[in-house]
Structures are given as C-alpha cells and as structure tokens.
Design a protein around this nucleic acid. Structure first.
Lengths: 131, 131
DNA sequence: CGGCATCCGCATAGATACTG
DNA sequence: CAGTATCTATGCGGATGCCG
C-alpha cells in the first residue's frame, strides 16, 4: 500500500458495540428491525392481539410479524400471554425491560415522523444535484 | 370467515408511520439500518474520514459503508466534505439535523450495550424452555 | 485515499396454503 | 384467531477490480 495512513489517532471504543462479533449488534438489530421497531412503539401505548398488530402495521406479513414478535419475546422485551379461550386469544405486551428500549425508539420514530417533509425536500435537492 | 373479529376497537394512528406506503418508513429504515445507526452514533462525538469509519465499525464492507453514508447524506443527516488534497481526504460529519436524530439513537445503543447481558440471559432461558 | 461498477450466492422477505 | 409450513425470487451484502 503506497498510500499514507490516516493522520488522526483513532480512539478505540470502550464498549464493543462496534466489534463485528459482539452480541450487542444482534440485539440492536432486533430492536431496530423494520417490524420490531414498530411493534415496540405500538406496544408502548397498549397491549395488542396478534391480529390487531397485523392490522395496525400496514404491509407486514403474518410471517414477518410472528418472527419479529418471537425474537422480541426471546430477548425479554415482549410478553406473550395466551388466553385459552375459544377462539384462542393472544395478547402481546411490553415487559418493563421492553418499555425501557421502546422509549428511545419512540422518540426516534416521532422525530422522523415530524421531519419527513424536511428529509424528502433534502432528497429532492440531492437528486437535482446529480441530474 | 367463520371466526369472530377482534373485540377491541383499534385506534387508527394519527401519524402515518404505520401506513405501508408512507415515506416515513423509508427514512426510519435509513436511520435504523445496521450500518447507518452506527455511523450516526459515531459521528455524534467527532467527524471522521471514510477509512476511519471503516476501521472503527468492525465487519462493515466498503460498499455497505459508502451506501449508508450516501443515503444519510441524501437525507440531510450527514455532511460530506471533500478536501482536494493529494491524496484526497473526505470528512464526514453530522448536520445539526443529523445530530437530532443521532441523539435518541445513541440513547438506544447505550441502553442495549448496557443490557446485553440481561438479554443474552433471557435468550438462554427461552431456548431452554423450548428444548 | 475514497470511492464506484460489476458479479454473484445465500439469506430472507413475502405470498400462499394449511392447521389447531 | 393465531399462527406454522412451504415455496419462490428478490436483493442484501461480500468480493473483486478499476479509477480520480
């Protein structure tokens, strides 16, 4: 490599979030996943049944929703409660732990929601610059 | 469908975050993407060059990093500054707007980082229950 | 150095059908 | 209702090579 290296001394992160093999990455992926994030924010305001979530979250397939829920449950964020009624009824809610993760996620989604216009405008300007 | 519908009246979200065709989803995906999220949190503390980011973020390929940076730039979160030196030097930093999104994301990553152990423990117990 | 273009395989999203 | 099972194919993401 005939090219000079970076001149800046790079501080290595104390935490291992940036290490490729750290499980932190996996957990973060679960939380920030396309459907997982929406589930967390929704459950922050109320518990919901499977079909209610499927209805509320536009464009999600049953498979993907079930998958996201199972992962979040395994991680300890979501509680799955089966009511042995006929027909079966399954309630999903947040654990206290899940509530803690969901909170900043909600802040994030609300910020994005509030500023979509700004982002879209910026995207247009970027596109124009290329064309 | 011989099955009874949901008995709970479901409030339709005011925002359209949950609509399948809403651009809010796209933006959220950019921000919460595997590499995008890490980039945002890193740039919160300092600006970095491309190669520095590539070094700091373990496991990222140049392609994916460049891709993440380009979308974040197009969205108006990241500023790309080219120094016409020899060899070329490109600095990436957050815009004030980007700083606003990155903040809650940092809260999220720090929470996850702090509680990885708890999650991993819960995962083990879940696995045990299945086996 | 900081990219972009290209190729390519495996993962995984998603549609559909079926079940307790 | 609340999921699983099965199948397909799209596309993410990695590897490589070239260029300003």
């Amino acid at each position: 490599m005939p090219w000079p290296k970076s001149t800046k001394t790079v501080r290595i992160r104390k935490g291992n979030l940036y290490a490729a093999d750290c499980p932190t990455r996996d957990v973060l992926d679960d939380v920030t996943s396309r459907w997982g994030s929406l589930v967390l924010v929704l459950l922050l305001e109320s518990s919901y049944r499977f079909s209610e979530l499927a209805y509320l979250i536009g464009g999600v397939s049953e498979k993907m929703l079930a998958q996201a829920l199972r992962v979040l449950e395994a991680d300890g964020f979501v509680l799955r409660t089966v009511h042995a009624t006929k027909p079966p009824k399954v309630e999903y809610s947040l654990t206290p732990f899940g509530r803690e993760v969901a909170e900043p996620m909600k802040v994030l989604t609300e910020f994005v929601q509030k500023n979509v216009g700004k982002v879209m405008a910026h995207r247009e300007r970027s596109k124009a610059r290329v064309a």
